[in-house]
């Protein structure tokens, strides 16, 4: 273990964390094996700060751990009952805002929203369900788009724009009317530039964007978050990559 000097360290819940300048609080925490709940963050994409699950208290002020830079000496409160209560309410908001029916979703077990809810022991969505009418777009030959499950994290927006150079997805509308739109003349995915090889096709943390023809290739019970709660998979969260090899080929083998 290298020395942790005060010039390049800060504390989370009293634990000393080393960081390299430029790292965000979330990046430094994950690198040090400390879990901070998050949904709209992915290590390969620019920080966004919209889901607010990673909100921590930094020197007494609330802030998103995914966008705030780590600074020497700051004191971060993270795994506290008050913050976890708030995070549970945020999850409940996301569950009632869309149509999340886990028993019929291919993503179940690999879904980050579900894993977060398990980990924070969310037993009920609590609030009145909006039951919105949202379309399912099956026009693309290789990819499903089911906006019923969308949590508006904009990971697909960022992956398509910044990694694929295509900007297939974009957030449109306002407030409760916000929704992801597809950049094509018809607004349909089949008419867009999206390819199954795009990173944007594989970055969705929930079951809104799914590859076709690979349903349940990995059985329920053997999926990413079946083995251990998401809070104990910090290494995975810190180092995960959006698959570059199309999931289809990988799984067909």
């Amino acid at each position: 273990m290298s020395d942790i000097s005060s010039a390049n360290s800060f504390s989370i819940d009293g634990q000393r964390i080393a960081f390299t300048p430029g790292q965000t609080i979330l990046e430094a925490a994950l690198a040090a094996g400390v879990y901070i709940p998050h949904l709209c963050h992915h290590p390969e994409l620019t920080p966004h700060g919209s889901c607010k699950l990673c909100t921590v208290v930094v020197n007494g002020r609330n802030g998103s751990a995914c966008t705030q830079k780590a600074m020497p000496g700051i004191e971060v409160e993270n795994n506290s009952p008050a913050l976890n209560d708030r995070r549970r309410v945020l999850l409940q908001m996301l569950f009632v805002e869309g149509n999340h029916f886990c028993p019929g979703c291919e993503k179940s077990g690999n879904c980050q929203l579900q894993a977060l809810a398990y980990d924070l022991e969310m037993l009920t969505p609590h609030f009145r369900h909006a039951f919105p009418a949202r379309p399912v777009d099956t026009t693309h030959p290789d990819v499903w788009l089911d906006l019923n499950r969308c949590v508006m994290c904009e990971l697909c927006v960022r992956a398509s724009r910044d990694l694929d150079g295509k900007s297939v997805f974009m957030l449109a509308g306002r407030g409760a009317e916000s929704r992801i739109v597809v950049n094509s003349p018809s607004g349909l995915l089949g008419d867009s530039e999206l390819s199954i090889d795009d990173r944007a096709a594989h970055v969705c943390p929930v079951g809104a964007i799914l590859p076709k023809r690979v349903g349940y290739a990995v059985p329920i019970g053997q999926r990413q978050f079946d083995a251990a709660p998401i809070s104990r998979q910090v290494d995975y969260l810190a180092r995960r990559h959006i698959p570059i090899v199309p999931v289809t080929e990988e799984l067909v083998k």
């Binding site: 889901c51 609030f127 407030g175």
Partner: peptide, 21 residues
């Protein structure tokens, strides 16, 4: 506020509507 929320972050996008309801 429910009408004016921009929709970017979860608490405001959903919370202002829930509060209104």
């Amino acid at each position: 506020f429910a009408h004016e929320s921009c929709g970017f972050c979860t608490p405001c996008r959903v919370g202002t509507s829930l509060l209104k309801n």
